[in-house]
Amino acid sequence: MTDAEIQQKLTAIFRSVLDKDSIELTATTTAKDIEGWDSLTHVDLIVAVEKGFKVSFTTKEVMALQSVGDLMRLIASRCK
């Protein structure tokens, strides 16, 4: 899976979970940049990502995430 494909699929997941079609993700996007992406919805997003990409993350991996770029790299490392 290429980085562009991951980004495209991730954007679709974010739009669906947060119910906002206007979301545009980049590698530098963080929770501060997107309204509605808070501590309560964060795990919903991760669960949707796990289902969408058919991967599973550990608590440590999720806690280390600081931006969408980190999440994309984590997904890429699993989808090799």
């Binding site: 991760i46 608590t59 806690m63």
Partner: peptide, 20 residues
């Protein structure tokens, strides 16, 4: 939120609303 809620919420994610 960062050191208790998030790890707990993530560990309980399979329990849906009850976990939350």
């Amino acid at each position: 939120t960062d050191y208790l809620f998030m790890p707990l919420r993530f560990s309980l994610r399979r329990f849906g609303t009850a976990g939350l």
